[in-house]
Amino acid sequence: MLEISNLSIRYGSKEGGVRALEGVNLRIEDGSIFGIVGESGSGKSTLAMALMRLLPKSGSVEGGQVLLDGQDILSMPDREFRKLRGSKLSLVFQGAMNTLNPLMRIDIQVAEPLVLHGMSEKDAALQKAHETLELVGLDASTWRKYPHELSGGMKQRTVIASAIITQPKVLIADEPSTALDVITQVQIMNLLRSLQRRLYMTVIFISHDFPLVSEMSDRIAIMYGGKLCETGRNDQIMHRPMHPYTVGLINSVASIGNKRKLSAIPGDPVDMRNPPSGCRFRPRCSGATEKCASYGYAVTNVESEHDVYCTLYGN
């Protein structure tokens, strides 16, 4: 169980900085796929980096807790956390295709986490790397190749192999399929899902691609401007979206064969240096009222497991 409570992250100084994440509360059950959707700058990647404790130097945790099986991973000493990072908690990076060292054979790179955690000797690690590469669908002819010899999809599989080789409990996949063509994207998604079942991992799947997230996830959280809008089970979010932003997102998704007119959400993404008072979505929201300007982001539980952060429902 991964419990994120009241997490706030800031980039830069108290005066001039940006609050990239504010008061985020999530409960992520073991063995589930949890999707996080949001547009650029909504804080999705910041959340991923904060969970890995890999925020850039300018980033700092202002408050909140992240409990992994009851252990607070944000406040534990660095040395303790390093035992978890890359072993119990793995990350597949955004633009993962560039996360391979161009001068290192892929099987050696995949074996790296095992060696770095002292989990096995070099030869055994390499053996395990070959098994893992096989598992993600790369056959023996590719094991000793260099990244530039592989296609985008193959590189993505390699990156996934390196993330799962330690059999992590939690796998954070940050836009794992961006920059891949649609067919490859589907293959990678199917791979992630089958691996998730097979290894009983908790997958946190971060993307701006709403249809993809809804395809993959058991539960979904929608983020906007560093705050949560709505969280719930997949069917609740897809069939009974409550937050105006969620509704807008769903209506702006194109689907083949359906001649329904697409509607965009008017306005620009929130300026994080100078966010509006109250609800951050307020300037773009058609249902905004005066109440929204002083909204304090109280959560409303509209049905079991389905939470909305909006004045339309409660306070």
Binding site: L54, R85, G86, L91, F93, G95, N98, T99, L100, P102
Partner: peptide, 17 residues
């Protein structure tokens, strides 16, 4: 600044490594 350096950090690689 290349992503693979960050990825190595996520794999728990130390600075010297």
């Amino acid at each position: 600044e290349w992503p693979f350096v960050e990825s190595a950090k996520a794999n728990n690689a130390g600075s010297l490594y």
